[in-house]
């Protein structure tokens, strides 16, 4: 696809990295929280994603923070008069397009992009607080230097107009940033989380456009599972499960699973259920993994273990009693 001598060729530059993205639940929670706390009248929130890139191109997104931004695609003049001061305060913006009336506003400090600023109609304008982004990144680096910028997120369904500009900015921060979109509006009636990488469409040296290419997203829920979905799913949990209550719930679940297996096996034996060899093999495998111990040996093992446990519990009870006694004695000593 190399450009021939003296000829310009329209070409896509495919991005080498970012074959897939893994998202940790804390990122999802962070995005939702920042969306809930978005400024008045803001349509979406954007922010930086932190994490690491594996050698095989898998991007692991482990952390995130929101970045204040402003954008508009319609009322450009209003938008500009509103925002021009804040551009100056923030010192930078990503701008695209320009003005047909040659208002002569200087954007030199505002746009670091290479786009022409005059002669076009403004198609989209995005102001991103880049100082904020950098400060926050430095702060995060202090805590965990291993987490680097891997991309950015935005709420909303799919890629919108301003996204290309923001993506352009992140391209300068890191090679091949990932763009994660979280549909907080549930447009399709489902929670859609999508990740994109951009592929540049260029004509010769001129960059014409960027195409967002969707990549597979995987939710890394093992951590959340550890905590328990019961806590994370409902809007209010009154009490955290303790040692014994947790174990009880787990045992109940285990027993119900065993019941399910019994039902299936009985069903197959009776001829009510169509046998499935795969399920059969799975059951055989899990049964084979149960140590087959002779009842007498098992009893001994179990009882030894039980007695150890009882001994431990007994010991801790004695220690506790000892503490109470010691305290009584200590206060009694004062009476002397």
């Amino acid at each position: 696809m190399a450009a021939a001598e003296g000829q310009t060729v329209l070409q896509f530059v495919p991005s080498p990295a970012g074959t897939s993205a893994k998202v940790h639940p804390v990122v999802l929670f962070g995005i939702c929280d920042s969306y809930v706390r978005r400024p008045d009248q803001a349509e979406r929130v954007i922010g930086t994603l932190l994490g690491s890139v594996a050698p095989d191109g898998t991007v692991e997104i482990r952390n995130s923070y929101a970045v204040p931004h402003n954008e508009s695609s319609d009322q450009v003049s209003d938008f500009l008069s509103d925002l021009y001061p804040s551009f100056c305060r923030w010192g930078v913006c990503c701008g695209f397009g320009g003005f047909d009336d040659n208002r002569g506003m200087s954007f030199s400090n505002c746009s670091r992009g290479s786009q022409e600023l005059s002669g076009f109609r403004v198609s989209a304008l995005v102001a991103l607080d880049i100082d904020y982004h950098h400060n926050m990144f430095l702060s995060h680096q202090k805590v965990n230097p291993k987490e680097v910028i891997v991309g950015w997120y935005s709420t909303g369904f799919g890629v919108s107009g301003g996204s290309a500009l923001i993506h352009d900015f992140y391209c300068r921060e890191v090679a091949n940033p990932v763009h994660l979109t979280v549909d907080t509006g549930f447009k399709n009636g489902e929670a859609s989380i999508k990740a994109y990488v951009s592929i540049n469409l260029s004509l010769g040296d001129r960059q014409l456009a960027a195409q967002f290419h969707e990549i597979p997203v995987e939710l890394q829920m093992a951590e959340a599972e550890r905590i328990g979905f019961d806590i994370l799913k409902t809007t209010m949990v009154d009490k955290l499960p303790g040692d014994l209550e947790g174990m009880e719930a787990t045992m109940v679940r285990l027993l119900s699973l065993i019941d399910d297996v019994y039902k299936y096996v009985d069903g197959v034996v009776e001829g009510d259920v169509i046998p499935d060899n795969n399920i059969g093999r799975s059951i055989a495998d899990s049964l084979a993994s149960v140590p087959k111990i002779f009842p007498a040996a098992f009893d001994k093992l179990f009882n030894d273990r039980l007695q150890d446990n009882v001994l431990l519990a007994y010991l801790s009870a004695i220690a506790r009693t000892q503490l109470t006694v010691a305290e009584k004695l200590n206060t009694a000593a004062q009476v002397l």
Binding site: D33, T184, E225, R226, I227, L232, T235, T250, L254, L257
Partner: peptide, 30 residues
């Protein structure tokens, strides 16, 4: 301690994670 989640996050978690019979938590406990 009480744990609260915004309705949004609750919707996301419910939609993304269908009720599975066992979780990592159960394996850890056993």
């Amino acid at each position: 301690i009480k744990v609260s989640n915004s309705a949004l996050i609750s919707a996301f978690m419910t939609d993304l994670e269908t009720d599975s019979p066992v979780t990592q938590c159960d394996f850890d406990r056993l």
